[in-house]
Design a binder for these strands. Sequence first.
DNA 1: CTGAAAGCGCTTACAG
DNA 2: CTGAAAGCGCTTACAG
Lengths: 336, 336
Amino acid sequence: MAKKRATMKDVAARAGVGFKTVSRVVNGEPGVSDATAEKVRKAAKDLNYRKDMTAGNLRRTEGRTDSIGLLVSSVGNEFDSRLHRAVEDAALAHGVSVFAASTDEDAERERLLALTLVARRVDGLVLMPSGDLSFLQHELDLGTPVIAVDRPPTGLSIDTMMVDNDGGAHASIAHLVEHGHRRVAVLTHLSTLTTAAQRIAGARRAWAEAGLPGSALQVVTGLSSTEDTLRAVSAVLGSAEPPTAIFAARNAISVGVVRALQSRGLQREVAMMGFDDFDQADLLDPAVSVVGQDPAELGTLATERLFARLEDPSLVVEQVVAGTELVLRRSCGCGA
Amino acid sequence: MAKKRATMKDVAARAGVGFKTVSRVVNGEPGVSDATAEKVRKAAKDLNYRKDMTAGNLRRTEGRTDSIGLLVSSVGNEFDSRLHRAVEDAALAHGVSVFAASTDEDAERERLLALTLVARRVDGLVLMPSGDLSFLQHELDLGTPVIAVDRPPTGLSIDTMMVDNDGGAHASIAHLVEHGHRRVAVLTHLSTLTTAAQRIAGARRAWAEAGLPGSALQVVTGLSSTEDTLRAVSAVLGSAEPPTAIFAARNAISVGVVRALQSRGLQREVAMMGFDDFDQADLLDPAVSVVGQDPAELGTLATERLFARLEDPSLVVEQVVAGTELVLRRSCGCGA
DNA sequence: CTGAAAGCGCTTACAG
DNA sequence: CTGAAAGCGCTTACAG
């Protein structure tokens, strides 16, 4: 049962060659006669030899492990898991495997996970920052690329791939204003997260540009659960001057708003738009209009940047802002 | 820039101790005086020392890497990503990291990915089987646990955690029959996948038990894209004796059916039920009834089984069949 | 074309 | 309480 795994030495002994020759055959290096190579391959097969990548990396000059780490809010999230898939594809194209883990937006957990990944000597890190990242400065100096996705990093000057949060929110609010809405509620998550702050800023900018009074744009922040969202919808709808449209700054909030509106039978009375598309948004009644962003694009860009930086560490730090797209369906009252 | 990473030797030199002492302090082993330990910790901090887990594993007797591999259809799928999150949580509780990858239901890709994981010496594997797994027999013999989730394995006798596909489909069809449906269409994915086969079997069993003629239960298999589903719905609805209810054997098919029905304005005329719940199913109009299963439960069970087997390799192979739950909403015509 | 030696950064097994 | 030696399974750098 608990036999030992065959090593190159075992294969060499069985094939009657030196074990360096086995190394050559296993790695497809030149300089081995066909006959010898064949003997080695047979021996390897007989013994079910499986090369130990981790042992090889140790001595190798650049010390690559051909693995990278990915840290997102939660690998179970719709947005994050799509981004994950894109990262996997980009990594696989380089023969690299990915360790994925969830920070739950918790800075301390993020730190622990990142440090574990470093202890595993991943070749690089792609992360959706939750807390201060200065503890990674040393790894950066040592040449381990760290790339931020979806949110700007704090405490570290690194490549960042994010979406135009300000622009997307701006376009969305401008669209609502254009269609006659003069009282709008903006429902967001924790405003300490940059995505929320930028979306609020974009919304306010569009509002101001339209020359509308700031007081008519109600901004509610800090919504983290569905219950929070339901309560917030109750509150804004129950206010003296209720909004005629709601802008949900995030996926989960959009879904909460739909639920709240449906339970009041107001889904056709109150307009809504959300930031980030979500599953079945187009099948709802009315279909929900959103600011579309592409998590896969962010994942691909980030991972490719990671490999580019591995090739050339002197690359200048860049920030890529991917565009958003207004996906107009029915919920904003203007038809698709 | 490309300085070298500090090793235990470097730390030892700076602290003026032997490097075995550094090893003791770093690993929290006893037998080091407080004063010495403090010196070592300071030196480690000064040098930004990060232990190399991969090097340690090499010499370690049991040779654990504290990593496991997870292979699912796609880490970007709703079902798979939820399962992934549960696996991560269970693994993290053991201080273990997870390599996740997507097979795309492709046997050859699955084989390559699994072998890479073995080359990385993961402590175990959790996978949603797509092809024959006999190539892993040797690893199994060597004591690397392999656990199947969601689908029974082929070519390997291993622990399997799956859902009661037959029972769930049976309950669903029985429910439709009970509510008066006498012509039903069953729309499924590739019937070579056991989940499809089992769901078809359960549906047929319920149908037969109700004493209904087999010809009134139309079974369409092999649907793999949304287009396939739309076409299939067209076909069954256009047949001489169209069904009054549709049973969608899988997530993606349910969504396709909803789309097809909505585009015809038939969502209230034709009843439907799906296997596996999906996001926003309860917010659709009408809300979609489903056979609910819990991917997180499967992930948790599988991962815990993996660790149990690591502790005790002599455990007898078991198959766990998790129950399903009928989530009755509006689409089956019977109200919630 | 082939192989013996040294070394990667640790842990194990011993010796003081 | 502390450290020197050997070894994990490979790759590197040489020598034949």
